[in-house]
Every structure is written in structure tokens, then in C-alpha cells.
Simulated scan of single mutants.
Amino acid sequence: DRVATVVGSNVLCGAIDAALVNGMLAHSDETDDTHPPSQSHPGCSVVPSALAAGEKFGIDGTRFLRAVALGYDIGTRVTITLGKLEYMVESHRSTHSLSGEFGSAAAAGCAAGLNAQQMRWLLSYTAQQASGLASWQRDTEHVEKAFDFGGMPARTGTTAALLVQAGGTGVDDIFSGADNFLEAFGPKNGAEMLVEKLGERYEVTRTNFKKWTVGSPIQAPLDALEILLNKHRFEADQVREVVVRVATDEATIVDNREIPDISLQHLVAVMLVDKNVTFRSAHDKARMEDPAVLRQRVKVRLVRDDELERRMPSREAIVEVTLANGTRLTEHVEAVRGTVENPMTRDEVAAKARELITPVLGAAACARLIETVLNLEQVNNVRELRPLLQKT
């Protein structure tokens, strides 16, 4: 049943397989969105599930948008209720996986046209598959992490939707009956948060884009350093020291990591040398051994800041650059570019898309894809996206 597209290839496969692969691809290089109120990355699983199920059932663009919006609303509320980062630390469960599983199921269920009763069963099938451990933090290559955040949730949600659409029945009240999900998973908040302002507050509007194609805790430091470079026009060799303050737990995630796109010290050094961080430079592992970069890296000192930790989930950073002549330059970024408080413009989002997509699909195909996505309401069948997503 080859009904779904593997993005960036010529492969067609079943919806479940496509959701799995596209989910992993979506989180494979730190370019996907984040939702701080729920400690999750909704897009990397919700969108692949909506696309896979949407292709299978031939839905139109408006239905696809509804499916994605619903996925963001359902998945994020699950881990908001569980207790987001504090819950993950205490339970050792991955909020990113759990949010993605329920969000993906809702999106795929909407695309499959499930009715209200079937949606109840869908939630139960998803709860039975709910899994994910915080051990993803020890994955130094971020391959398993891509599975945990994107691929597994997308596969789980799409599987649940297709089972119910095919006639599967189940438990009606998985969040309230005997032996229910909340009893099993022990949330830190009341069950009412599962439906708090549902239909009024749309979680996709509380989701952050990443301006930089790097780990989320490095967004604010790069913003701050870019501001300082633009204001004061200094060169890397003029710098004596760079002190970067971020939230305590955030520092642990990015402290001298083995992977370039989540190593704060390395990326600050790249920014000093290049005056910019691109997708290519952020993922160029060879540059971690570049003498020019290493000369700057030894100047970078990461500080775990308890005050910034208290301000989470606002991902702030304070960067202090001391020049060789003693001049001290400081920048405090309170709202990262791409967040709800400091949103990227449509042109900025399109520019980021072009940087990421053009090397794979080519400039012409990329332009057509961006134009189509920005006008999804006019798409009669999401299968029309296939030639735009495939590698020719």
C-alpha cells in the first residue's frame, strides 16, 4: 500500500512507515520547532503523521491544517498536565515522546476522518503505546533521539489512527476510568489541564521557531553574540574571553557536547570566526578540530545561572565579551528570535526554509514548495505536495 511520501527521496511506502521515517528526518538536525510550555517538539511528529494519513485518505489542504492544529492542541496538553521538565526529571519519562504520541494520534485521526466515538478509542490505543525514556539525553549521535522525539511518536499516532479507522474499538475513557492513563503515569497537575481552554487557546500559536539550526539552549547565546557583533564590529582575535550564562539545566544539555550543533562552546567560537552560524557550519563536525575555531573556543566559558533557571521556560542568555583592551560588552537576550515574544517574519522563515531545502530539492522546486505551503488552503488534495517533496 504505497500511498505516502518519504520526503527528500523518491520512496513511496505505507503511511505508518512514512510517518516513522519523516518524523526522524524532521528532528535529525535540530531545525524543528519547540513548545516550551509542554517541554516538547510538536512539529517533528505531528506534521509527518498528518501528511502520511492525509496522503492515504486524500484530504485537502484545509483539513491538513486542521489536523496539524489539533495535534498541537492535544499532545502538548498531555505533557503540560504531566508536569513537563520537572515531570521528566522525576519520572525519567520523556515528555517529548509522550506529547508527540498523543499529538500525532490526534492529527492522524483528524486526517482519517474519525468521529467522536472513534477519537475516544484512538486516545486509548495511543495510551497503550505511550512510551519514551529520558535516557535520550545520553544519545551522543542523536539518531535514537530523532526516533524518540519524531519517528516513534509519529509511528505510534498513525498506527493508532489506522487501527481505529479500520474498525478497531477500545476503551472509551482512558483518562478517567479504572486503571486509566493518569493513574498509571502520575501527573503533577490536575486532569482539568487536559482540556484547559481547548478550542480557545491554540498551542501552535505558542510554539517557537528556531532562527538558528542548533539546539534550543544555544539560540539565545547566538542571538546575543550576533547583536554584540553588529553593534561593536570587533574581530575574533580582539576577544580575550566570552562568558555565556544560561539556565542551569539548559547548560548541561549543551556543555562541550560531541555533536557540533549542540555544543555551545564550539558554536560560539564558530560565530566569532564566521560572524554567522549556518546549517552547514553548525553541522560540520570537521570544524570541531579546526585550529582557527579551537583558538576561539578556549576563550568561551559557560556559566550555569540559577536566576535564569528560575525564569524557565523562557530561554534567556547573558553574553559578556571582554576584549583584549579591557572593554567589556554585555547583552541579555530575554526573548529569543523566533519565539512568540519575538517572532520571525514570514520572510525570515522562508529564508531559513530555502537554506535547508535548496541543497536537497533545488532552488526552483524549493520556491514552488514554499509558495504552495503558504497557500495550503487552496490545495485540493495533499497528494499534490508529493512532486514538490520528492527528490528528482
Rank of each mutant, 00 (worst) to 15 (best):
Val164Asp: 05
Trp212Val: 09
Glu196Asp: 09
Val204Leu: 04
Phe209Asp: 13
Val171Tyr: 01
Ala184Trp: 10
Asn189Arg: 10
Leu225Gly: 15
Glu196Lys: 05
Leu222Gly: 15
Asn189His: 12
Leu229Val: 06
Phe175Gln: 08
Val214Leu: 06
Ile227Gly: 10
Ala161His: 01
Lys197His: 04
Asn208Val: 00
Met193Asn: 11
Lys210Gln: 13
Leu229Gly: 14
Tyr202Arg: 12
Asn230Trp: 00
Arg201Glu: 12
Gly215Met: 15
Lys197Pro: 02
Gly186Asn: 14
Thr156Leu: 03
Gly157Ser: 09
Thr169Trp: 00
Gly186Leu: 08
Thr159Val: 06
Leu182Tyr: 13
Thr207Ala: 08
Lys210Phe: 12
Thr207Gln: 10
Asn208Pro: 09
Glu200Pro: 02
Gly167Pro: 00
Asp223Thr: 13
Thr213Tyr: 03
Lys188His: 08
Asn180Ala: 09
Thr158Ala: 07
Leu228Ile: 10
Gln165Cys: 04
Asn189Gly: 00
Thr158Asp: 09
Val195Phe: 03
Ile227Phe: 01
Val214Ser: 07
Gly170Ile: 01
Thr159Pro: 08
Glu196Gln: 08
Gly157Pro: 11
Val214Phe: 09
Asp172Asn: 03
Glu200Leu: 04
Leu225Ile: 12
Lys231Tyr: 00
Gly190His: 11
Glu203Leu: 04
Ile218Asn: 14
Val195Lys: 03
Gly170Met: 01
Gly157Ala: 08
Thr156Cys: 14
Thr159Leu: 07
Gly186His: 14
Lys210Arg: 15
Ile218Tyr: 15
Lys197Asn: 12
Thr205Arg: 07
Trp212Tyr: 15
Leu182Arg: 07
Thr207His: 11
Gly157Asp: 08
Gly168His: 00
Gly190Pro: 08
Asp223Glu: 14
Thr156Met: 09
Thr205Asn: 11
Lys231Thr: 11
Asn208Cys: 14
Glu200Val: 06
Val171Met: 02
Thr213Gly: 12
Glu192Gly: 06
Lys197Arg: 10
Leu225Gln: 13
Leu198His: 06
Ala160Asp: 04
Gly168Cys: 04
Pro217Glu: 14
Pro221Val: 11
Leu182Cys: 12
Asp223Ile: 13
Glu196Ile: 06
Met152Pro: 02
Ala191Phe: 05
Ile174Trp: 04
Gly167Thr: 01
Thr159Gly: 03
Leu194Pro: 10
Leu163Glu: 06
Leu228Tyr: 06
Phe209Gln: 07
Thr158Tyr: 04
Ser176Ile: 01
Pro187His: 07
Pro221Ala: 09
Gly190Val: 06
Asn180Ile: 04
Lys210Thr: 06
Asp172Phe: 01
Tyr202His: 11
Thr169Arg: 07
Thr158Gln: 07
Ser216Phe: 15
Arg155Glu: 15
Pro221Cys: 12
Thr207Arg: 10
Arg206Leu: 12
Thr156Lys: 07
Ala220Leu: 08
Ser176Ala: 09
Lys188Asn: 06
Lys211Leu: 10
Trp212Ile: 14
Gly199Met: 02
Ala184Ile: 05
Thr156Asp: 15
Phe209Val: 00
Gly186Val: 09
Arg206Met: 10
Pro187Ile: 06
Ala160Gln: 04
Pro187Tyr: 13
Asp179Glu: 10
Leu194Phe: 00
Ser216Arg: 15
Phe181Asp: 09
Ala154Leu: 06
Ala178Glu: 12
Thr207Lys: 09
Phe209Lys: 02
Val204Asn: 01
Thr158Leu: 04
Val204Ile: 13
Thr213Asn: 14
Glu226Thr: 15
